[in-house]
Design a protein around this nucleic acid. Structure first.
Lengths: 232, 232
DNA sequence: GTCAAGTGAATTGTCGACATTCGACAAAAG
DNA sequence: CTTTTGTCGAATGTCGACAATTCACTTGAC
């Protein structure tokens, strides 16, 4: 059974393909806001800039389409997704459904085992809210906490759906600077969710998530409309 | 507001691109079982058979990946997705979460307006269960009913997620002939769900969907394991 | 001045060819 | 006989070129 090598002496080489690297670069640019929502992703331009051909760029764009960052229109190309007020409500209703289900599933299983990861995620979120708060990092930490809940549920599907919509959430939220005006408050608003999970209280979990995400669902769309108007 | 043409006199030309047609053809072949789960989708072969180049075939495959029908492995190509027993449980937990949320949302809105569509979908399901029951058609009608619930919720996200996982459900369920041994019984099992929605009874809706989908969730995985063993 | 049609540059859609990688079989060493 | 190494066919990965489509601009008539 034992070959000459028992423990791996080398970490696997980073062999992620060209397409993945292009996709990552594009995603980073979109999330960082260097490409604005609604902007067209010119295949030729991107390919030329990156020094590759158009084929892998197209594939990368298709990949990003799955993440909801990019929309494709036939014969017109790829565009950075613009999220509307109405779509934001729907998006958050889906988040409530998914994350509530994940949390309930988590409680039904081994909640104790999952708590450290959740607590750690919340701590990181609080840390990100301290001092000179970078909005992008703050959003990342926020999403990471919610993702941790899905992950801890043990159901890969919940994580999959969450990942698909996380970036869209990001795009929507980033349009609104004001939302993160009081980062510490945002961070604190996650505590009831964790507390309910820790207490394994099903009803409290449902209520906490509904309140936490429901607040954003009801608060953000009007802001989105206002900000969209202002931009004209 | 009114232009010279008020009613459309011509159906829109079939301008859906080559990629879409390839994707549809492939999807049809997979759903019909002409390509078995686990089989490789050879780009070259498909391209040659269809008389096109490999580029649109690749894109079509990437599209099908979003529908969960196909999985992509780097440098190895596309394969028809194989669903495992464990994955099936997760899949159905997600369905319960989505469809329950959709139904509750539906009740919160204008339930009366949505009822005709749901009733019609259920009738079609019953009709499909009559006489010489084609399993594929039966599954389609079954899924169509559940999709109608998501659609009636008014939340496009629910529909989007449902569509993404519907085909995977199909692949999993099709592996098990026995499940549809008694089609009429299957059709009837949908009635409580519709009744609960019609009554706008939140608790009943939650219970009905949990029971209806939960039965499949608990029943199918052992069957999947058994059938997989048998196939060896 | 407004609107329609025409024109052309720019972009996407598709293709065939070449480079790279993979997996299986064969061959050689232990 | 088992294990490792070498080789080879076949598939994917990437590319540059051409065709088809779109969009902004110009042109012209009313």
């Amino acid at each position: 059974m034992n070959g000459p090598i028992e423990t791996a002496k080398f970490a696997p080489l980073d062999r992620e393909g060209l397409v993945d690297r292009i996709a990552e670069t594009l995603m980073e640019a979109i999330i960082a806001g260097r490409i604005a929502p609604g902007d067209r992703l010119s295949e030729s331009t991107i390919a030329r800039d990156m020094g590759v051909s158009r084929a892998p760029v197209r594939e990368a764009a298709r990949l990003l389409e799955n993440s909801g960052l990019v929309r494709y229109r036939a014969n017109r190309g790829f565009f950075v997704h613009e999220i509307a007020a109405e779509g934001f409500r729907d998006l958050y209703e889906l988040r409530i459904a998914i994350e509530t289900a994940a949390a309930l599933r988590l409680i039904a299983g081994d909640a104790a085992a999952a708590l450290p990861a959740l607590t750690a995620a919340l701590d990181r979120l609080k840390a990100a809210a301290e001092g000179e708060c970078d909005v992008t990092a703050m959003i990342s930490a926020d999403l990471a906490f919610h993702r941790a809940i899905c992950l801890a549920s043990g159901n890969a599907r919940f994580v999959q759906v969450f990942d698909q919509i996380a970036n869209e959430t990001r795009l929507g939220v980033m349009l609104i600077g004001r939302l993160y005006d009081d980062p510490a408050e945002i961070a604190r608003s996650h505590e009831p969710v964790l507390a309910a999970i820790a207490a394994s209280d099903r009803e409290a979990v449902v209520a906490a998530i509904e309140y936490h995400l429901g607040t954003a669902r009801d608060l953000v769309p009007p802001m989105l409309v206002a900000d969209t108007e202002k931009r004209r």
